[in-house]
Each structure stands twice: as structure tokens, then as C-alpha cells.
Design a binder for these strands. Structure first.
Lengths: 380, 380
DNA sequence: GCAGTTGGTGCTAACGTTAGCACGGAGTAA
DNA sequence: TTACTCCGTGCTAACGTTAGCACCAACTGC
């Protein structure tokens, strides 16, 4: 598959070939005995005594080629283990069949679900998936986009960092792309996301309705579009519930850090006037919080009501069952895949703005109750 | 990034260019107004009035080019947004910078951790990661390998299906590759894996030591190398404990199916003489089992002792804490990455067999105790 | 029997990049 | 002055594939 770096023999020397067994052996072959030698259309052509064009056309099932020739070519190609070289095809103007997914961290099951759905949908269309992790670092993001660009990927699905580098913006302008979850205005107006504001408004409203007044929020930084929206949703619910905006004990920080979740919840519970309820704004933070609460033996919902973010395996069996914000990950990922596949198959005319907002949904389990009290009879 | 399929203008027409503003505009450009036009070394050369060779060499930092020219070329390249075309470079004999990871399912956190570690280690070396999911289907696996082969990936890390297709074997022969976890003899002797036999032997021995005699095993099919090894390990421990081999209530089935885990444990617990202990042989099966046991309200370890497989977030807070088989995923992934990077950077001479076996480790928590009894005082 | 059509194939150029060779000018030694 | 070296650059071919055009033989219709 990789080209062995053997001395290059000019074409003219190819004529000094000899028949050994069934296969023409050229000077190049002799110098590579045993080493994996990549078969080209020319090898097939030489063996069958036809031209490269004929081989190419036979493999492309061109109607001008006779059935008999096609058969012989296919036979030979199969025997010799011919695999077309997409790099060469791309040079003739064909586009690549690779779509890149640029995300912060594949270990976040949110993103791995997306990767899976994309991969599944794209495989059916003959596309391959390139995976690039940014770790929420704009320079890493830039480096990846440069590589993707050099590899001429056909499309990009990206969960952008907070403030993408100017060069990243430039690079993305040259390739069909789609923002996922987070939306940065400079990266265009094709976006698939969640109604973060509404999701957090509902989650918080649920706690307000239960009678909580000291409600904490732990989420990603305002710098991130998702972080800002979720915080806004949280505050909206407080306001609607007649609570002061700044009644919130808000802790913002790296959204992908389980550790930060543990630290933050420890801090929140230490002070006097500790909150009686907690809303979370990221999956990883939720994981950290759950671990910490388990270890500290905090009584949920007795001492603290908790609403998580996302619905991971384990959330349902955590303590009394975690009330949480469910996200339509699968639907979103499928939507992205279909949009991009259609976009890549049709002419780039339909490049207008596109926005798809999926709603979150509150999943009621046992981790929320009136402050200090028992869980009310549940309706679900 | 993709080449717009506009009418192709022969080179000769390029001479009929005119200076518009600072940039030469050729016939090709005019036909593409607004559309993203990919910059080549030739565009830079024309703009600066030098040859393509000079541009190429300047960008490659060739010592023969004067510093002044290099500066001008780099300046122009940057301004015009030039991004080298790796497809063209590959045609000149360069290898690609893409390594493929072929796994059953990225949603399995085992594999997503591996993908993450690989990606991180490879990014530093300038490699990109291609992700291919097989869903444990050999035909899907084959289709992916064909595509990867056409794209001339530099290397492959694969968790093979039970019985890879003969063509898959052929394809893998032409590319440096590495088997991960599962090992199929036809795919060569480079392998990174876990000591499955020993891991399951220890886990089962732990239950035998506690006094259990009716121990069930739930794992992947014997067809898979890992499935076979784990089952062997389980049986070894039974034998060593003086229990008959077939004392095991063994349930084998699709290892990636959470649903199967739920169904299987339901069946195991229904019969008379239900087992008093259960050992698991896959992460996904463990997830299913934990969900089912939680829902049915089975008392652990009172009614049933459980040893899980892997250590997912959530395993520590499940019920009394899950005793489980911890796997050195990170170390293995890093090992794979380093091995492959070194393999790709050096000549293909060092292609000898290589095997790395990592040990699993039993993590003791609260889900195991003597049959019917309370957990003994824990030593950890 | 001859012009015209059709079916099957070959030749050639082109894609973007790179490496080998050639070339011209400036500088240096005899 | 002549011969030589060295520096910087240009020309050209090649990588594997595909598309346009040309070509030849066999057939068709008159």
C-alpha cells in the first residue's frame, strides 16, 4: 500500500522486460522481489496485452468495451490484487470520499455516539470518516484543519472551539462544512444543534416548581456558545420563578473535565447557605459530580436535588436514578450525515443557510424533590 | 478543497491572462468567479514570475533557494491561502499520513479510549486517524479495508472480526498493520492484547475462594479469540477450585450487545438452582447486566455476586460498587501508537513478529461476597 | 462495390508535485 | 584571458488515472 522507496526506473527501461512464468517482470519488479509492489492499471494492461485506457474503461464498466474484454480485465485485476489509487483519481478532478469529524474528545460518549451514527450513515454511501480531536485547543484545531485540507477531505463536521483561529476560518471556507452543537458566526450558517436555552430553562423550572430557591448551576464557560445559551436558559427560569438572576451559585469551567466537576461540586457544598439543588450543563461535569456525591455520601434528593445533563449508561442506576436532560443525539447525528451526504452529492448551489434545532427533553427520575423533603409521587 | 467541476481549460489558454488588480486572472478563474478555487504552486509561480520548481523548493525549504525568494514565496502562499495537495505528493512516491483504526463500535468506551490515545499520539507526529466501524460484520470489514486500501492509508490498527474474509487478509498484507485485542493467525503476528485467560481466571478464582460453587459466565462467542480465551480462563479457575468444568452456567453471545446482556442475565436467574455468582466477559454485556439487575432489584451481593468486565464510569457507583476486571487500555493504546509510529518512520525491515500482552487487574469493590452472606471485611 | 455508420480499442494530455538535469552568471584560481 | 566552480533558477519527466480524440475493422444501406 505504501510505495517502497526503491530506485526509480524510467519508463524506457520497462521495455527490457522478460516473461517469467505468467507475469511480465520488469526491472522495477526485480529490484523489489518479495516487497509489496502496488499493482497499477498498467500492470494489468501489460499482462493482457491491451492498453491502459482499455483497462481503465473495463474497470469503470464503460459500455464501449466488449463484455469479453471486461471479463478478462476484471479477472486479472482480481487475481493480481489491483486496488485503484484514489490519489490519482483525485488529481483528475474527482473529489475524495473522506469526511472529517472535528470534535473536542471522542471519549465523551456524546461525541462517540455521533461518530458512530455518522460512520454508519456514510459507509452506506461509500464515504470514510476521519477523526480529529481538538481537546478544545484552537491551535490543535488549526493543525487538524490544515492536515484535512491538505488531504482534500470532501466535507467537515465540526464542533468548533470557543474562538477558532482566523486561519481555521479561512480553511473552512474552502470546504463544505457543518457546525455541530456549538455555533460560531464566523464559520458560516450551516448548523445542527440543540435548543440549549430551552433545555436548561425547563430543567431549572422543574426545580423552581419543586420549591427550590437556592439553585446552583455548573456548566461550561460563557465563551462557548453552548455554555452561554445554557447559562441564559438557567437564568431565564430563575427570573420566571421570581428568583433573582444572581441567586444562582454558578460555577463555570472546562466542560470536558470530569475532575473539574468533582472540584466544583465540592466547593459548592462547602459554604454556608449551600444550594439545595444543582443543575448541570455538560455530560463530563455530570459524571464528575455523580462520582463526588457518591463518595461523599451526600443524600440525594434529601440534601441536594440534582438534574444532570445527557443520559449516559449509569445515570439511571445512580443513587435514586438521575433526573436529567435527555438529548436527541442519534437523530442529530443522522440529520448531519444526511445533510452532508446530500450536500456532497448535489451541485454546491444549495449552499444557503441551514439550521436545525433539536429539543432536549427532561427525563424525570428520583434525584429531584422539594428542598429537604421526600420525592413527591412521580407521574411518569 | 474539492475541485469544482467547471469546464477544463487547456494550458495554452492560460497564457491569455490579464492583470486585474494584483493578481493574474486566467480564463479558468473567470469561469469560476466566487467559487472556491484551489490554489496550486503554479498560481504562486505565475504571480511571482518564477517557476513552479522554485516555488516547490522554496516551500520545502530547499537550501539551493535564496532566502529572499523563499520569503516572497511563503508570503504569497500564505496570502493566497495555498495548501499543498497531498494526493499529488503521494503520486510522487510519498506515503500518506493517515492511519486507520478498524474496530467493531466506537460507542464502546473501550474503543473510544483507544481512539483517543491513538489520535493524541499520532497528532504529534503529523498523522491523521481514519475511523472504520465493522459492527463485527466481516463484509463491512472488507468494504472498509477496500476503501482504506484505495486511499493508501499508511497503516492499520485492527480489532478483527471472528473470521476475516480472505480478501481482507490479502489487503492487509500490503499495509503495515497491527492487531489489537483479538488475534487472528491469518492476519500476521503483530499483536497488542490483554491476557484474557489470566484476567478471567483471577476473577473467577476470587469467587471460588469466597465459596461459590454455582458460578455463571456470560461472555462473547468462542468464535472470537478473546471470547475463547476468557472462557478458558473461567474454566481453568473452576477446575483449579475443584469444581466441574461444566458447573458453569455459561451464556455466550454477541459481545457488543447491551440488550443481550439483559436477556441473558434474566434467563440465568430464572431457573431453579440459579447461580450465586456471575462473571462477565465484555463491557457491553456488563452494562446490560447492571441495568437489568438494578431494574429487577436483585440484591447484590446477597442474592448474587457479580464481577464485571472493564471499568466504566458508573461501575463504581452501581449498587454496592462493582468488583470488576480493570484493563490497561491507555497503556495498550499508547503502546500501539508508538509501535506503529516507529514502524512507519523506519524502513520496513523490522517487520518481525511482535506481541505485547498486558495484564488485567481485579478491582475489588462491594459486589462480591460469600454465597448468600454479607461482604467480608474488605482489604483494599 | 462504395460511402457511411458503429463498435472496440489505442494514443495523448492533463491533474499538482517533485527530482534530475541543464543552464547562465558571478566569482576564483592559474 | 581561460578554465573551473558554485549558486540560483528553469525545464522536463514522472507518478496513476481518466477523458477527448483518432483510428481501424466490420458491418449496413444503397
Amino acid at each position: 500500500m505504501i510505495k517502497p522507496d526503491a530506485p526509480i526506473h524510467p519508463t524506457t527501461e520497462r521495455d527490457e522486460s522478460a516473461i517469467v512464468g505468467k507475469r511480465k517482470v520488469t526491472a522495477r519488479d526485480q529490484s523489489l522481489e518479495g516487497a509489496p509492489y502496488v499493482i497499477t492499471t498498467r500492470d494489468i494492461a501489460e499482462r493482457l496485452g491491451v492498453s491502459v485506457s482499455t483497462v481503465g474503461r473495463a474497470l469503470a464498466d464503460d459500455p464501449r468495451i466488449s463484455e469479453e474484454t471486461k471479463f478478462r480485465v476484471r479477472q486479472a485485476a482480481s487475481e493480481m490484487g489491483y486496488v485503484g489509487n484514489r490519489a490519482a483519481r483525485m488529481m483528475r478532478g474527482a473529489s475524495s470520499n473522506v469526511v472529517a469529524l472535528v470534535i473536542p474528545d471522542i471519549r465523551n460518549s456524546f461525541y462517540s455516539t455521533i461518530a458512530h451514527e455518522l460512520s454508519k450513515n456514510m459507509e452506506a454511501e461509500g464515504f470514510q470518516l476521519m477523526l480529529s480531536e481538538t481537546d478544545d485547543d484552537r491551535m490543535v484545531e488549526l493543525r487538524h484543519l490544515r492536515e484535512l485540507s491538505a488531504n482534500r477531505v470532501a466535507g467537515v463536521i465540526i464542533v468548533p472551539t470557543a474562538r477558532p483561529h482566523a486561519d481555521s476560518v479561512k480553511l473552512l471556507r474552502t470546504v463544505p462544512h457543518l457546525q455541530l452543537l456549538r455555533r460560531h458566526p464566523s464559520l458560516g450558517s450551516q448548523w445542527f444543534g440543540v435548543d440549549d436555552h430551552e433545555a436548561l430553562r425547563q430543567a431549572t423550572a422543574h426545580l423552581v416548581t419543586l420549591g427550590h430557591t437556592r439553585i446552583a448551576y455548573l456548566g461550561g464557560p460563557e465563551e462557548l456558545p453552548t455554555g452561554a445559551e445554557r447559562l441564559r436558559g438557567f437564568r431565564s427560569a430563575l427570573r420566571e420563578g421570581g428568583l433573582p438572576d444572581d441567586a444562582g451559585y454558578t460555577e463555570l469551567g472546562p466542560p470536558s473535565s470530569v475532575e473539574h466537576g468533582r472540584d466544583a461540586v465540592r466547593r459548592l457544598l462547602q459554604g454556608r447557605d449551600a444550594p439545595t439543588a444543582l443543575v448541570l450543563g455538560s455530560i463530563q461535569l455530570t459524571l464528575g459530580v455523580l462520582e463526588e456525591l457518591s463518595e461523599q455520601g451526600v443524600k440525594v434528593p434529601g440534601e441536594l436535588s440534582v438534574v444532570g445533563f445527557g443520559d449516559e449508561p449509569g445515570f439511571s442506576w445512580w443513587g435514586p436514578g438521575l433526573t436529567t436532560i435527555g438529548l436527541p443525539i442519534q437523530e442529530m447525528a443522522t440529520g448531519c450525515a444526511l445533510w452532508l451526504m446530500r450536500r456532497l452529492k448535489t451541485k454546491p448551489s444549495n449552499d444557503g443557510p441551514y439550521t436545525s434545532v433539536s429539543p432536549g427533553s427532561l427525563i424525570l427520575r428520583g434525584s429531584t424533590a422539594p428542598p429537604g423533603g421526600r420525592a413527591p409521587s412521580r407521574s411518569d
